[in-house]
Write a protein that binds this DNA or RNA. Structure first.
Lengths: 110, 110
DNA sequence: CCAATACTTAGCCACATGACTAACCAACTC
DNA sequence: GAGTTGGTTAGTCATGTGGCTAAGTATTGG
């Protein structure tokens, strides 16, 4: 039962990978350009890219010897939806509590 | 450089822990109540709770022998902000691209 | 006070993850 | 066509993660 959310949240639970996503929101980039500024060996970096790609957060195409990577919006939306659901449920509960408190208050003063 | 986002995303990259968060949006609950329905040994489950608590997503208080767990909104907001930033940047870029395309089109037809 | 309840601690194990080096392949460039 | 550039594959290693059992502590109910 390995949910897509597992993989997407997991992919973003790493500063290198989040940095790549942030960078890609400014436009597609080649692997080596993305690698610049990250102080780690290229194969290590490539593994991070692979994790991102398998999560669906990113896709890539190769032309000649250059692989270009671009961001994909869908998984971000899936996460956003999940977060929104939790927020709505939580706030709904707070509302109900507030109403309940008021009801009790009224009964108290009558 | 271990960011809070690392820990929060990491905490939610597990179905058991997400289920706990979902359950807690419906109100606080005792450890054993949360454990019900999760097919794993209690110590294992407790480790998940510890991860959630260390991420700040959840806090708990003990009264007598019962520990009650409640959700905390702040970390969810931090994540939401990060996601929103990415979305805004990404959509901003798409807008700029669209404008650019139009400009090129005009130049094309003049 | 004895037993059941509700965690808690300790210790073990298998597998996943993030890092590295070394060596390789495939395309441009001169 | 020889060398450089851009990426890939393979293999190793240390540490982290998620699971377990067994045994312990501290309330609470009878």
């Amino acid at each position: 039962m390995t949910n897509q959310l597992d993989i997407v949240f997991g992919a973003l639970a790493d500063p290198t990978r989040r940095a790549v996503v942030e960078q890609l929101t400014r436009g597609p980039a080649a692997v080596s350009a993305l690698h610049d500024g990250h102080d780690m060996a290229l194969p290590t970096f490539l593994k991070h890219l692979k994790v991102l790609e398998e999560s669906g957060l990113v896709s890539s195409t190769k032309k000649g010897r250059v692989r270009t990577v671009h961001i994909e919006a869908a998984p971000l939306r899936v996460m956003d939806d999940w977060l929104k659901r939790q927020k709505d449920m939580w706030e709904g509960r707070l509302d109900r509590l507030a109403r309940l408190a008021e009801t009790l208050n009224e009964e108290d003063s009558t």
